[in-house]
Design a protein around this nucleic acid. Structure first.
Length: 466
RNA sequence: GCCCCCAUCGUCCAGCGGCCUAGGACGCCUGCCUUUCACGCAGGUAACACGGGUUCAAAUCCCGUUGGGGGUGCCA
């Protein structure tokens, strides 16, 4: 009870400020999206501030248009940010800090190249401190290194991994300003987290190793209120390796293009590393915000399972109103059938809605109405049309079609009636002749969108091929 | 090599010393619904990596082993 009250108090007193810090070196991928999501959820849960901080210190690899792309993906996912900063706007601050470190003998200029170092200590060793005591002046090819302690340990209480500790002796003197004068990520990171009063640093596990350096830097800055860290488990591929932009299909924008709903993506991403106590996975974002807490995050890496994403997406698609479904799926249909009649598609859409997991699947359910029927697969044709009764079924249907009312019920009783008379299943051959497929949306309701002539022609064509 | 981390069904999550003959979800399988497919519904399949402790009691705590991952850049 007391603990609960204490917690409540702390919640109120502590201002949560979190940040998502992507480097604009590529499109937003699912791993980054999940980091953003967890930060955002925590901020929203605590009534805190969610900041987007673009870490574009590496000018060679950062591309401005990618910042826009990150904005778009975040916005698409419904993740809104309260403040935005770019590290490239703050270089002077970082450089001033580095200069201060040098002045206080906490950092020094270093003229060693990678080759120099490898020549001295080999491939696998870190920096050997060669320039530590040389008292080098600034100059061409001189970077600034931060001097790490040789003894003792540094560690922190991680919200997801508990206590993490490093021996200072394994930390090499690392570069904080490149020889071209551009500050490095650790420096910018430490400065910004302190200056922006970041309360919780929530990021991927691949960054744990950089944390001791940032902590050292903050200590050197005299920061007393250190942020609380939470290192998220990685999202991995089928080989259990960290998702890679090169190897894996992970750009958030690609999922949008394939016809995933942002709500589904966001909901699915959430289940990677976190689960609600009551086991209900698919639920409104409000409930998720209410339940979310960093301390409940899992430690183990999670596999990005597109099959499960598809299931989530299907569920969300089915939750859409009929109109919303038409609106969302129409672009995918129009993409393949530019001349498609929207009214016709809207009448077909309800049948499509309960059959697709992604909007990109929509066209193939209606292609036989909006365009020509696809050529049937060889094995489907054999299996369906190879039966002895098929010619008589088709003949009977063709025979009676001209005098049938052009509405679903009449067409249904015509086709099924033929089947009953001949005591065979009559729908399949008609379906294959009309749609080119053995399965799909219901046959008779959509069928009336076709003209009597077209239906007759397709039927006769199939009959001719027997 | 060195440093850090992880380990419950094939996959994701629940479990935080007794409610566990381990629960939910995806997948897969079966049945119902339906003269297609799907949706829906009802079932089923399947896991505490291993070995030592601690304890009256361990999936839950400790140690080790094995396996896996991350890092080791003048990238972030």
């Amino acid at each position: 009870m007391e603990a609960t009250i204490h917690r409540r108090w702390c919640r109120k007193l502590m201002t949560v400020r979190v940040r998502f810090s992507p480097a604009p070196t590529g499109y937003l991928h699912v791993g980054g999206a999940r980091s953003a999501l967890f930060n955002w959820l925590y901020a929203r849960n605590r009534g805190g501030t969610f900041i987007l901080r673009i870490e574009d210190t590496d000018a060679d690899r950062s591309e401005p248009h990618l910042i826009e792309a990150i904005h778009d993906s975040l916005t698409w996912l419904g993740i809104d940010w309260d403040e935005e900063v770019r590290q490239s706007d703050r270089f002077d601050d970082y450089r001033a800090l580095a200069a201060d470190f040098v002045a206080r003998d906490l950092a020094y200029y270093c003229g060693c190249t990678r080759d120099d170092l490898v020549g001295r200590v080999g491939e696998n060793a870190g920096y050997d401190g060669h320039c530590r005591t040389l008292g080098l002046e600034p100059g061409e090819g001189r970077a600034i290194r931060f001097q790490t302690p040789d003894t003792g340990t540094i560690g922190w209480d991680d919200l997801v991994r508990d206590r993490v500790e490093f021996e200072n002796s394994v930390l090499e003197d690392f570069i904080i300003v490149r020889s071209n004068g551009v500050p490095m990520f650790h420096l910018a990171n430490a400065y910004d987290d302190a200056e922006m009063k970041i309360s919780h640093v929530v990021r991927g596990e691949d960054l744990v190793n950089t944390t001791p350096r940032v902590l050292l830097l903050m200590a050197a800055m005299g920061v007393t209120e250190l942020p609380t860290y939470a290192h998220l488990p990685l999202i991995v591929n089928e080989q259990r390796k960290k998702l890679s932009k090169r190897r894996d299909d992970v750009a958030v924008g690609d999922y949008r293009d394939k016809g995933y709903l942002p709500e589904a993506m966001r909901n699915y991403l959430l289940t990677l590393g976190w689960g609600p106590k009551d086991n209900i996975e698919i639920r409104p974002i409000g409930e998720i915000i209410e339940q979310f807490d960093l301390v409940d995050i899992n430690k183990a890496p999670a596999f990005f399972d597109v099959k499960k994403l598809d299931h989530f997406n299907g569920e969300y698609i089915r939750m859409l109103s009929a109109d919303d479904f038409v609106e969302a799926s129409l672009p995918h249909v129009v993409d393949q059938f530019p001349a498609a009649d929207t009214e016709v598609y809207a009448r077909l859409a309800p049948f499509v809605q309960e059959r697709v997991a992604r909007f990109e699947e929509a066209p193939r359910f209606v292609d036989w109405i909006l365009g020509d029927a696809p050529e049937p697969e060889e094995k489907d044709w054999r299996k369906v049309m190879g039966k002895d009764h098929v010619p008589s079924v088709l003949d009977a249907v063709i025979d009676r079609l001209p005098s049938t009312d052009w509405e679903p019920k009449a067409l249904e009783s015509l086709v099924l009636g033929v089947g009953q008379e001949l005591e065979v299943k009559s729908q399949l051959p008609v379906r294959l002749a009309l749609t080119g497929r053995r399965s799909g949306v219901p046959l008779f309701e959509p069928m009336v969108e076709l003209s009597r002539d077209v239906v007759l022609r397709r039927l006769e064509q199939a009959r001719g091929k027997l």
